[in-house]
Lab assay of single mutants.
Amino acid sequence: QCIKQELICKWIDPEQLSNPKKSCNKTFSTMHELVTHVSVEHVGGP
């Protein structure tokens, strides 16, 4: 049986000017979605 898990993006953008810096905190249900999000939204490139 599949256990529902919540994956949370903890990326902190080093360019943020606010202190304390905020992490992204978007939630995902699969590791694939999380990896895709980080690749596209934070790292950039294909």
Rank of each mutant, 00 (worst) to 15 (best):
Q1R: 07
Q1L: 05
Q1E: 10
Q1N: 14
Q1Y: 02
Q1T: 13
Q1I: 09
C2W: 01
C2D: 13
C2Y: 11
C2L: 15
C2M: 15
C2A: 09
I3K: 02
I3S: 03
I3V: 06
I3A: 03
I3F: 03
K4H: 01
K4Q: 04
K4L: 08
K4A: 08
Q5E: 14
E6P: 10
E6S: 11
E6A: 05
E6H: 02
E6K: 02
L7C: 07
L7S: 08
L7E: 13
I8A: 14
I8G: 11
C9A: 02
C9D: 01
C9V: 01
C9I: 00
C9P: 01
C9Y: 01
K10P: 04
K10L: 06
K10M: 07
K10V: 04
K10C: 08
K10D: 11
K10G: 08
W11P: 05
W11R: 11
W11F: 14
W11Y: 11
W11G: 09
I12G: 06
I12K: 09
I12W: 08
I12P: 11
D13N: 15
D13P: 05
D13G: 05
D13I: 03
D13Q: 04
D13V: 04
D13S: 05
P14F: 01
P14A: 06
P14H: 07
E15M: 09
E15Y: 08
E15I: 12
E15H: 07
E15T: 06
E15S: 11
Q16W: 10
Q16K: 05
Q16A: 08
Q16S: 12
L17M: 12
L17Y: 03
L17E: 14
L17Q: 08
L17S: 09
L17R: 06
L17D: 13
L17N: 13
S18F: 08
S18T: 13
S18C: 10
S18N: 14
S18P: 08
S18V: 04
N19P: 09
N19T: 13
N19G: 06
P20S: 03
P20R: 04
P20A: 07
P20F: 05
P20W: 03
P20G: 07
K21D: 05
K21N: 15
K21L: 09
K21R: 06
K21W: 09
K21A: 10
K21G: 09
K21C: 02
K21Q: 13
K21T: 08
K22E: 06
K22S: 09
K22Q: 08
K22R: 13
K22M: 09
S23W: 10
S23F: 13
S23H: 13
S23P: 12
S23K: 15
S23L: 14
C24N: 01
C24L: 00
C24F: 00
N25A: 15
N25C: 02
N25S: 13
N25L: 12
N25Y: 05
T27N: 11
T27M: 14
T27P: 08
T27D: 12
T27V: 12
T27E: 14
F28S: 01
F28K: 04
F28P: 04
F28W: 00
F28Q: 02
F28A: 01
F28I: 01
S29R: 14
S29M: 09
S29P: 14
S29K: 11
S29H: 12
S29D: 15
S29E: 15
S29N: 07
T30I: 06
T30K: 04
T30L: 01
T30E: 06
M31P: 09
M31D: 15
H32V: 07
H32N: 14
H32P: 13
H32F: 11
H32E: 12
H32S: 11
E33V: 01
E33N: 02
E33T: 00
E33G: 08
L34E: 02
L34M: 12
L34P: 05
L34W: 10
L34V: 03
L34D: 01
L34A: 03
V35A: 10
V35M: 14
V35Q: 15
T36K: 13
T36C: 07
T36D: 10
T36S: 11
H37K: 01
H37F: 00
H37I: 00
H37V: 00
H37L: 02
V38W: 15
V38I: 10
V38T: 12
V38N: 11
S39V: 05
S39T: 10
V40N: 12
V40I: 10
E41W: 04
E41Y: 07
E41M: 05
E41D: 09
H42K: 01
H42T: 00
V43R: 14
V43P: 13
V43A: 12
V43H: 11
V43K: 12
G44S: 09
G44F: 05
G45N: 06
G45E: 10
G45M: 05
G45I: 13
G45H: 04
P46H: 14
P46I: 00
P46D: 11
P46F: 02
